[in-house]
Simulated assay, not measured.
Amino acid sequence: MRSINVVFLCNLGSRFPLMIIEGLLKIKNVKVDVSHTFYYLGKPILKNTPFEELKEKLLSCDYIFRSDNQHFVNRKKYDQFIDENKLWKKCVIIDFADSYYIRDKKNYKNCLIYFKRSWLMGCKRKTPPKRKKAFPIQYAILEKYITSIKNYNSKKKYNILYISSKRLKKRMHDFNKGGVYKVLYERFLNSLNEFNSRTINTMRKDIRKRFELKTRRFKTYYELLRSNIPNSLIGANTGGSHMDIFYPANENNKWIEYMKLLKKAKIIFTACPWNHDGDSRTWEAMSSGSLVFMDNTLIPTHPFKDSKHVFYYDASSRKSIKEAIKKAKYYLMPENESERRKIAEKGKEYALKYHMSKNRIKYVFDCIEKFRS
């Protein structure tokens, strides 16, 4: 098997670049250089190659893996070098951005192939739009997720765990307190010289349509709170865990705290953001060994089987969320514990076999080969 040389251009940290680097390093015939040093729990995964030396690598490599513009700041000198030497046709763009559309249209036009994380699926999970050289790509489980807490064993303390963010909690608080309504009413009234009760009622309906439980994560959060399942953490906040993944693993590291928290749950609910795919928490949950209830999502290869590995639900539908909660309550009954554990173990085993970082990189190379042929 011939050696494949790859240069990875990315210099803004998130979990996704870590997945790409680890995946590239796990494939034996791939040699990789990076423009920026990335760390996992304070230790470098791979040190960067200085720009002057990297120029030669860019000219001689087989592929240039380049992140989207949002995650590749200070990119001007790299893009200028790629332009001058006409290297775009060996560029593999990997778009980590939260947007469901292709932001970097110029790069999409010039590159060899384009991978998009937050693939647009729509509330009803419609078939993705066909684009000639755009392919969906999902998060994955990093091997380091497993090794960083391999000696940690915990009893299943919580019945249900649902992770949220500070922004989601604030939105929920505003919704309950009427803060959103108040602010919008003030803006609306200040913009009008004359108004009547009919106008106000129309505005009220418009606000509800816009804000009331519109996002997938918000709907799931709301219904889980209403379910009042005891010994549960609904909206547990991980604080800075998404950045703490880069910092040393001391007792104050929120990432370690978060990974341990996942192992304490019997059941974990995850939901996609807004109306597009791309939830990293699903894959982190799958590595924990808990039973996962996951929002419908596009998994290009080896999707999980419902009721065998995970339980699917539609987070855009309150009815579907309620049905999922009812099912979760069933699996929390003592007489159904062995069945719950069996599904959770099968799900984890399947995820570790087909959804590790190296599997994602193999998928990327497979797509490149199929596209070129």
Rank of each mutant, 00 (worst) to 15 (best):
K77P: 07
K124A: 12
K55D: 07
K47G: 01
R103N: 15
C111I: 01
P136H: 11
D79S: 11
I113E: 01
Y100S: 15
K105D: 08
T49F: 00
Q138F: 07
Y101N: 11
I45W: 06
D98L: 15
A97T: 15
K43V: 14
C111K: 01
G122P: 06
I64Q: 03
Y78M: 03
I113A: 01
S60I: 05
Q138H: 10
P128E: 11
L54P: 04
R75A: 14
I82A: 08
N74L: 10
I94V: 10
A97D: 15
Q80L: 13
D104Q: 07
E52L: 10
F65Y: 08
T127Q: 14
K109Y: 13
I113N: 00
P136V: 02
K89D: 10
A134W: 00
L120I: 05
E53H: 06
C61L: 03
Q138S: 14
Y78E: 06
K132M: 04
Y139K: 03
K126R: 14
Y63P: 07
L58S: 07
K90W: 08
Y101W: 15
L58C: 09
Y63D: 06
A140C: 12
V92Y: 05
D62A: 04
I45M: 12
N48P: 00
F96I: 11
H71G: 00
C61Q: 00
Q138D: 13
L120P: 02
H71N: 13
